[in-house]
Amino acid sequence: MTEYKLVVVGAGGVGKSALTIQLIQNHFVDEYDPTIEDSYRKQVVIDGETCLLDILDTAGQEEYSAMRDQYMRTGEGFLCVFAINNTKSFEDIHHYREQIKRVKDSEDVPMVLVGNKCDLPSRTVDTKQAQDLARSYGIPFIETSAKTRQGVDDAFYTLVREIRKHKEKMSKDGKKKKKKSKTKCVIM
């Protein structure tokens, strides 16, 4: 069974824990209790493949930012979460993405942009803004509501699919490099 290491990042209060708990335990946590770091595991079937999701729910508070490099190193894919009623959390996505790329030393890291709290009427981040940002990053965008469960499975499952595509691409690139290195030079 394939294991996928997913990391949920975003500013404090955007609903990272609520999304994760909704996926794992099928219930909505409405009281806000700032996370330092929590880890969850769940076995699911995605596109006919049974897999184990190892999900790291991270601290959004700035005082825990020193811990970010460590979990970013171990993560295979990242859910970059903002709240649709919090423009600052949307603007912060850029910083999370840049930090992930720096730590992973790669421009090509599996990510999904997630606009959470889409059940709320007080939207300050337009869907088109988020779609445009995701398009500019070359990553999928999904709106979710941890409260109603809308888009929750889709967000995590899409990230797994992005990781699969990335692994497939990397193995193809690896095979191309191996083929090239088999060419021999004969000096007579």
Score class of each variant (00 low, 15 high):
R123P: 08
N86Q: 08
F141E: 01
I187T: 10
P140R: 02
I100F: 06
F28E: 00
R164M: 09
A66Q: 07
R135T: 08
K42G: 03
P140V: 01
T127G: 06
V114C: 04
L159G: 03
A130I: 14
D54G: 01
D119F: 13
F82W: 06
K176D: 15
R97W: 15
K184V: 13
L133G: 04
F28H: 02
K104P: 04
I84G: 15
D54A: 01
G151E: 07
D33L: 02
D57L: 00
G174F: 03
K128I: 07
T74D: 15
I84C: 13
I139Q: 02
V186M: 04
A130L: 13
S17D: 00
R164D: 12
P110N: 05
N86M: 03
G12F: 07
R73I: 08
I187F: 08
I84W: 12
S122N: 14
T20F: 00
V45R: 12
I187G: 14
L159S: 01
L53Q: 03
V103G: 04
C80K: 01
V81I: 07
R73M: 11
Q22V: 02
T127H: 05
D173P: 04
S122H: 08
I142A: 13
R97E: 04
S39W: 01
C185E: 15
D153V: 07
P121K: 10
L23E: 15
I24K: 12
K117P: 01
K16S: 05
S17V: 00
L6D: 04
Q22T: 12
V112D: 01
A130H: 07
T183E: 14
K169H: 10
L52Q: 14
Y4D: 12
K16L: 00
L56T: 12
G13E: 12
Q70M: 14
Y71N: 14
E98L: 02
M67E: 12
C185Q: 15
Q22G: 08
V81W: 00
D54K: 01
T2P: 12
T50Y: 12
L6I: 14
I163V: 07
T127K: 05
V44R: 12
R123K: 11
G138A: 06
K5A: 04
Y4E: 09
A18I: 03
Y157I: 09
T74I: 05
G13N: 13
L53I: 10
D126V: 05
V81R: 00
V114L: 10
D119Q: 14
K5L: 01
M111N: 01
